[in-house]
Nucleic acid binder design. Structure first.
Lengths: 138, 138
DNA sequence: CAATAAATGCACTTCCATTGCATAGATATT
DNA sequence: AATATCTATGCAATGGAAGTGCATTTATTG
């Protein structure tokens, strides 16, 4: 079992205390978080550092962006089954209109999207909005 | 054949010169436009007016928002087959990574998206990115 | 024509994303 | 181990887009 340090290094990301903390924060959160969420969790750290850390994670394919239509970019750790680096990857995300959380449904299979002749599909972003399992169960 | 004036009135939108111009601009553009696009087209008009006009159009269901993942809200006239007011409506939009245009593929049918147990789907936003027919034909 | 209501324009605010530059910290080189 | 070099971090500032309050103009109604 590899440590977080080893994992980051395997992705060509230098290990720093800050990066370890942010990685752990992302790992603890099943939901996609905004930069502000991270900012609130690490009040001592500068916003720019958090921003650039996320960018670094993104460039090295351990984090992906989620655009759930709220207008605020969210981020989540890539999990197995989430092959962001593959262009044809289909991101399925669910945004709960009740609790406002956005979660990745990576394990959920989606039918192939066909586009009209002449169009070349490189990337598909699918956001379903509604009520999540936690909120609907109440 | 009803005029634009009659159409707007049928949607409970008061007819003004500005609104007619903006409506015509949207009708001329097959692609989804940003507020800045409209702003550039009507430099004499105030941005707030354009903003509120679009909001009015939106509230009266003749324009719908498109979130194509560029982070900037885009707008397009609803066409027949685009039933925005129906919650289960599926918006399919195509964003060209080459010419940066976003178009509505309203006539294009999409398979039903199923969500896991416990989740309630109210709205689906699907954005396909790639190369559009115009750009791929070159 | 006067009274009322809606639309427009101006100024301002807020929020998020992003960048430049200086400094602190880590890594490599001698 | 000391120094040079490169990266990460922090601070300050900018820019873009969305949104709001208020005054003024324009349209509608009695």
């Amino acid at each position: 079992m590899e440590t977080i340090e080893q994992f980051l290094e395997s992705k060509n990301i230098r290990v720093t205390a800050m990066r370890l903390l942010i990685y752990k924060f992302l790992a603890e959160n099943q939901v996609a978080v905004t930069l502000s969420d991270i900012e609130n969790a690490f009040e001592k750290a500068d916003r720019t550092t958090l921003y650039r850390t996320i960018k670094t994670f993104e460039e090295n394919d351990i984090v992906h962006q989620i655009d759930d239509g709220t207008g605020i970019t969210k981020y989540a750790l890539c999990e197995k089954g989430c092959n962001c680096e593959i262009e044809t990857d289909l991101h399925l995300h669910f945004h709960c209109n009740n609790c406002n959380e956005t979660i990745c449904l990576t394990e959920h299979k989606i039918p192939q999207i066909k586009v009209p002749d002449g169009f070349v599909s490189e990337n598909v972003n699918l956001v379903v909005k509604g009520i999540c399992d936690k909120c609907s169960g109440q």
